[in-house]
């Protein structure tokens, strides 16, 4: 059990803990937007941590580079997909609760196409 394996196991276990937090957020939050928020932020850092741990675990130059590229792809794609889903559900008015006092996004809708 070298130091490298300890670091990789630590990263992977931390990522899995964040994934469990994501599931808790998806189950416990009340409406669409807060659930999307839980799925976006925590799941991104979870996936990046797990890929970093795997890249340290295999410790081969080209293989680790490929796994790091997969992590960078997660870092790009997950917030983008979340943005698309949230924007579509806002424009479709899926589950727009009445108790929100502040609706800051409606100012921006006229400007970007």
């Amino acid at each position: 059990m070298t130091l490298r394996l300890i670091i990789s196991y630590f990263l992977m276990i931390t990522g899995s803990a964040f994934a469990i937090v994501t599931v808790l957020g998806l189950l416990r939050f009340p409406d669409v937007y807060t659930r999307i928020h839980a799925g976006a932020v925590v799941l991104t850092i979870s996936a990046v941590l797990v890929t970093m741990g795997t890249a340290i675990y295999v410790w081969d130059l080209f293989l680790s580079a490929k796994i790091v590229l997969i992590g960078i792809f997660f870092l790009f794609s997950n917030p983008m997909a979340t943005h698309a889903i949230a924007r579509a559900s806002y424009k479709r008015q899926i589950a727009l609760p009445e108790e929100y006092e502040i609706d800051a996004y409606s100012d921006y809708l006229g400007r970007d196409a």
């Binding site: 790009f76 983008m80 698309a84 924007r87 970007d112 196409a113």
Partner: peptide
């Protein structure tokens, strides 16, 4: 269609 928003278009343009 006009497609999705500006952020998605730029990000997919990179990817």
């Amino acid at each position: 269609s006009k497609g999705l928003s500006f952020i998605v278009k730029r990000a997919l343009g990179i990817m």
